[in-house]
Design a binder for these strands. Structure first.
Length: 436
RNA sequence: GACCCCUUCGUCUAGUGGCCUAGGACUCCAGGUUUUCAUCCUGGCAACACGGGUUCGAGUCCCGUAGGGGUCGCCA
């Protein structure tokens, strides 16, 4: 039988990385098996399920490259069918009406749990088992006449022909109930795989207040969808060898639910950043350029295409996330940069620096052409003749023209800025910090 | 409290009874290359939660204990 998996989120406007990881595993499994990956929008909570929330969800999936094989099913459209099935269960004596004191004034419908233990083979957890005396009848239709999650979820999984239910292990308790429902409905019980949850840097479960755990935030902070996908895929799963940076095709090929960890995994932002860097290094020049243009525009930095041509090579291998592009290169486009306090203290305001800068100024005026290679020779010669170290010469100059003690290769920076601009910035800094 | 799930370096993991003096990756630290900045290279720190079994032999199997998490809504 052809494998069919689904991602069944309830759209709330914020798509959490924990949920997305579940979606990724569903996608990976379906692709590995040559099956179908479906989307079902569980939008019965009408307050939260706005069109914008659904849009956010779809965007996040597209960004991560989670393509679906069929039109999404909207749970809210199926309410009448869910209710009809509940009535049918009553007629067969498998459910009953009761007064339990909930919303509305009418009676709710309860599903009658069987009086035998329920256990199932889980692809990740082994064989969870629950004794009959530990299970109670549960509500499937509220007294206000609306179907409850358990009923709708199972009925929709049957409708969509889901063969493998891959979800968080917070659903294990629900699964016992769901299996009873499948049996009552006369439907084949799908295979289950319960993934462990992921926890934040403090080792606690992600709560709705964990601001940086939403997929949109990672996108906004300059992460690549492919990098986040790779990171999340390996958070709780491994191919069994030492591979970490993997293409989608490699992950699809290697994916096995049986190789998933059964315990919770902690998100490590440092490792994600490292992985993102690895991905940025593999991005095409064209894509990197597009990302840079977007980042610079967003930072309100005015630039010309020729400036961009000159600057991109300097920062190409230095950014770990796209959000570093603007801060790292800003001084190359505009001259209103701040002088970093630490840089000033450690590199500029020091004995002998004004004299060094005066000498450099003269040499920089004379050198021709004003390009990286000759500039490097110039600095090299100066260092040799003056008996100073590179550490006494280059950092002060760098602070003057960039405000920072770190940054791209100094000679390349000088070339990109050009003689006129370098001298101007040099004079400005000297006037500002060595007035007398 | 009841029920269910989980437990290898700080973190992600490899490990399915001998190949484990427990391997890799991230982080961190120390050297080296580049006499700027970064990259890069080499090395180092660092773990089988604890206690009992089973076995010639246990990180690997079993049972306890402790700790963590989940569920116990007419939320999904």
């Amino acid at each position: 039988m052809k494998v069919r998996t689904r991602f069944a989120p309830s759209p709330t406007g914020h798509v959490h990385i924990g949920n997305m990881r579940v979606a990724i595993y569903n996608w990976l499994f379906a692709r590995n098996q040559g099956g179908s990956f479906l989307l079902r929008v569980e939008d019965t909570d009408r307050e939260r399920s706005t069109p914008e929330a659904i849009e956010t969800l779809l965007n996040a999936m597209e960004w991560l490259g989670l393509d679906v094989d069929e039109e999404p099913l909207y749970q809210s459209h199926r309410m009448d069918l869910h209710l009809a099935e509940a009535d049918a269960l009553i007629e067969r004596g498998l459910a009953y009406r009761a007064e339990k004191g909930g919303p509305g004034s009418g009676e709710c419908i309860l599903f009658r749990m069987p009086n035998h233990a329920i256990s199932f083979q889980d692809l990740i957890k082994g064989r969870p088992t629950k004794a009959a005396e530990n299970m109670e009848d549960f509500v499937i239709v509220r007294s206000n006449g609306t179907p409850v999650f358990h009923l709708a979820n199972v009925l929709d999984d049957i409708e969509q022909g889901i063969t493998h239910v891959i979800r968080g292990d917070d659903h294990i308790e629900n699964t016992y109930r769901h299996i009873a429902l499948y049996e009552a409905l006369g439907a084949p019980v799908p295979t289950f795989a319960h993934l462990p949850m992921i926890v934040n840097a403090q080792g606690k479960p992600y709560s709705k207040r964990d601001g940086d755990a939403f997929v949109g935030d990672f996108q906004a902070n300059g992460f690549l969808g492919d990098a986040l996908f790779n990171y999340l895929a390996l958070l709780g799963w491994s191919p069994g060898d030492d591979r970490e940076i993997m293409t989608r095709a490699e992950m699809v090929e290697a994916f096995e639910l049986e190789r998933c960890q059964s315990s919770a995994a902690q998100v490590d932002l440092k490792k994600l950043i490292w992985m993102n860097y690895e991905y940025i290094m593999r991005v095409s020049e064209l894509d990197f350029r597009a990302a840079s243009e977007a980042a610079l525009k967003q930072a309100d930095i005015i630039f010309s295409q020729s400036q961009l041509d000159a600057v991109l090579p300097l920062i190409r291998e230095r950014v770990k996330t796209y959000s570093e592009i603007a801060p790292l290169s800003r001084f190359l486009f505009v001259d209103d940069y701040e002088y970093d306090e630490k840089a000033l203290k450690k590199k500029l305001i020091k004995e002998g620096v004004p004299e060094t800068l005066a000498m450099l100024r003269q040499l920089l005026l004379e050198i021709d052409p004003f390009e990286a290679a000759p500039l490097e020779c110039l600095l090299h010669d100066y260092v040799e003749q003056s008996g100073k170290g590179f550490g006494e010469v280059m950092p002060p100059l760098r602070v003057c023209i960039s405000g920072e003690q770190g940054g791209p290769d100094l000679c390349l920076v000088l070339e990109v800025l050009g003689r006129k601009e370098v001298i101007r910035r040099l004079d400005r800094a000297v006037a500002k910090f060595f007035r007398n």
